[in-house]
Design a protein around this nucleic acid. Structure first.
Lengths: 212, 212
DNA sequence: AGATCAATTCCCTATTTGGGTAATTATACT
DNA sequence: AGTATAATTACCCAAATAGGGAATTGATCT
């Protein structure tokens, strides 16, 4: 097995030394670099050429949240593992949407950290248990109902879709080759089915119900 | 530490026996029940009273995907750990949106399975590395822009929100105690900022940009 | 064969909407 | 102190919208 090159970003000197020691002494791992903040992260990464970056969040000058974004913008192939005391949703989601590949809490053991580095290097997404749970929950909310409980017909859905794109009745009529009056009738029926009384409300409801 | 009661759903007799043995012999775990399919899952769960369910997906009559939904509908507190050979996105997302708390591949070792049961029981969300990675990727796509790049003001956002709920200019005016003409002016500005020309389109764009 | 439903077209009428233009006030930022 | 920006109100006017009712055609289901 090849050696995994690891760069460390951690402002606490003691912890940084500890991490260096841990990674340096563990078979199969090597310290590629070790830095107290993200000020020069782009340059350092190009010098260090790490496989995996361990990234603290709360650092002076430039946070790890920015750090992970900067790294991923240039080097999407480098795996970034967040390592922090924060377990609030805000920071978590920011890191993930900036491209972090894993999220470990500092309270986890060093054995778990080593295991996580290995895992993230192999393409996994190691997360502390509570973190994984929160990601799942948030994720679940985003993929709920792909069904049409309002019995909107295909034609009606088509009209609604065009309406939401700024088409007037006339333009919709021209687009799908029917009379404007028919468009109007379709909208009337749609409003009835959705229990709304105007276009904007219908569009809002349709989008939230994933009809369009 | 209390004993973790585990129910097993697995149609392959050999594997089921193996799982029973593994869990029965491991300190801190007990087999609460063991079943070859989900036909009577609701009743079985009430008899077994497990803390954790290990759920295969591909079973005759009724799949584990339905199984997890049925369990979670009645007993949200029971932790369900999927255990399957499938690693396609479709089945994965179906299971997760049905409430699965973890997702392990059968190729993982039995030590990892035991560890995962413990983890899911303690509120974590154990996933095989590749699975976790896919969940993160899918998740990332859903939370891209939490910012307001259209520079919609607070007041404008408020007007837009009411519009999307079916309020006419007049009603909005009454609601927030301004003149209908001001409402109109706000909408005009909103349309400019969003590059749209009518209410329905503005609402659609605002919802998709997460402004409202 | 009759019923149901989606899709289609038409009429009438009142209200709403949107674009243009202009002006005042308050607040925030430089 | 001076300059943006947000919020506010107003007027004119053409076009769009929404609600009421009525009728025809074709497909699908019973």
């Amino acid at each position: 097995m090849q050696t995994i090159r690891v760069s460390i970003y951690e402002d606490n000197t003691k912890l940084r030394d500890l991490l260096e020691l841990l990674i340096g002494k563990t078979e199969g791992f090597a310290v590629a670099g070790s830095h107290p903040d993200c000020r020069s992260v782009v340059g350092e990464i190009e010098t260090d050429r790490p496989d995996v970056v361990i990234m603290d969040i709360d650092m002076p000058e430039r946070s790890g949240i920015e750090g992970v974004r900067l790294i991923k913008e240039k080097h999407a192939e480098i795996r970034v593992l967040m390592h922090t005391v924060f377990d609030d949703d805000d920071k978590l989601f920011q890191c993930l949407s900036n491209g972090a590949d894993g999220y470990l809490l500092k309270k986890d053991s060093s054995a778990q950290l080593v295991q996580a580095i290995k895992e993230v290097f192999e393409g996994g997404a190691p997360m502390s248990p509570g973190i994984a749970h929160r990601v799942l929950n948030a994720f679940r909310e985003t993929i709920p109902a792909p069904k049409n409980e309002y019995r909107i017909s295909e034609r009606e859905q088509q009209v609604l879709e065009l309406l939401s794109r700024g088409f007037s009745y006339r333009m919709i009529a021209l687009e799908i080759l029917i009379s404007p009056e028919t468009v109007k009738k379709h909208l009337k029926n749609i409003y009835q089915k959705l229990h709304v009384q105007c276009g904007p409300e219908a569009v809002a409801k349709a989008i939230r119900a994933k009809i369009i």
